[in-house]
Nucleic acid binder design. Structure first.
Lengths: 154, 154
DNA sequence: GATGAAATCCGAGTCAC
DNA sequence: GTGACTCGGATTTCATC
């Protein structure tokens, strides 16, 4: 069942990545198979986890989340427990869009969306530096969003 | 026409953000209005740009893009022309998921997805340091994706 | 083992109110 | 905003290769 993807599966994946609300009928016609076949293949892409979820991209500025900030975080100690505690805590913060453990001068790199700089400063003082094990943070305010959340190229 | 969003509009937005393929009938029932009303409201959310596009989230590892890298970029000069040239060039690179102009020790912060470290090293040497005006780059390999592309909280 | 044709059922989209 | 109505698509079944 969990076979590799053929050219048609890849076409479906790419189409749904760019237009997640395409109907099965439209998909079927575009990729050149019958609606029944297309339906089965699309189902499989979901069932086997090739597609996680389908998400409407909400315009951040339209819902009062126009400010984007990246933060370099350094922890006190580099122990597994320290990392785990930090990760558990930051995963709960809803304004964190992205946060990865990296190799280099920082430990983590959260990307945060808030209403404005004032919001961020409050959150930084109240919640970020209070996260478990944080020794230091370095804030990078985003002045211009050049490429934001581009679709995956595959 | 471009009025503010009421509680029902927000509900629709949130539902579509988490399940972009919900049918209008399901949406309508969940938010508690008739299908006709729901259809009109949803249409408006698209027409007025509250929702940009709907995207199937493809699992990166399943399509051979398991490696994530963040790169701090410093340009030679801080002139508008220099920034513009860099932005035009990096926006064309398909493996760049994110790239923002920031305030702080770096100028730009591209986030890049590739197959593996070897891929990245090739790309770094061939394409990143060759971008117009790049003086220096600092690479942060992602060792663990803690939060990736979380939905917007609003 | 996968396909497409057909058949059923349900939702999309539009109307009048 | 709702209710009804029509049309077309979603989803299943089944014969076929």
């Amino acid at each position: 069942m969990a076979g590799p993807l053929d050219r048609i599966d890849l076409k479906i994946l790419r189409l749904l990545q760019n237009s997640g609300r395409l109907s099965n009928a439209e998909l079927a016609e575009t990729v050149g198979v019958s609606p029944a076949t297309c339906h089965r293949r699309t189902q499989r892409l979901f069932d086997e986890g090739f597609i996680g979820e389908v998400r409407a991209m909400v315009a951040p500025r339209k819902v009062g989340k126009g400010a984007l900030v990246m933060v370099g975080v350094v922890l006190d100690r580099s122990t597994p427990e320290s990392f785990a505690a930090f990760e558990r805590a930051i995963a709960k913060l809803k304004f964190v869009l992205d946060c990865h453990l990296v190799a280099g001068d920082f430990d983590y790199f959260p990307k945060i969306r808030v209403g404005d700089m004032e919001d961020f400063n409050r959150i930084h003082g109240d919640q970020l530096i209070a996260l478990p094990g944080v020794r230091q943070t370095r804030t990078f305010f985003v002045m211009k969003e050049v490429v934001d959340n581009a679709p995956l190229d595959f």
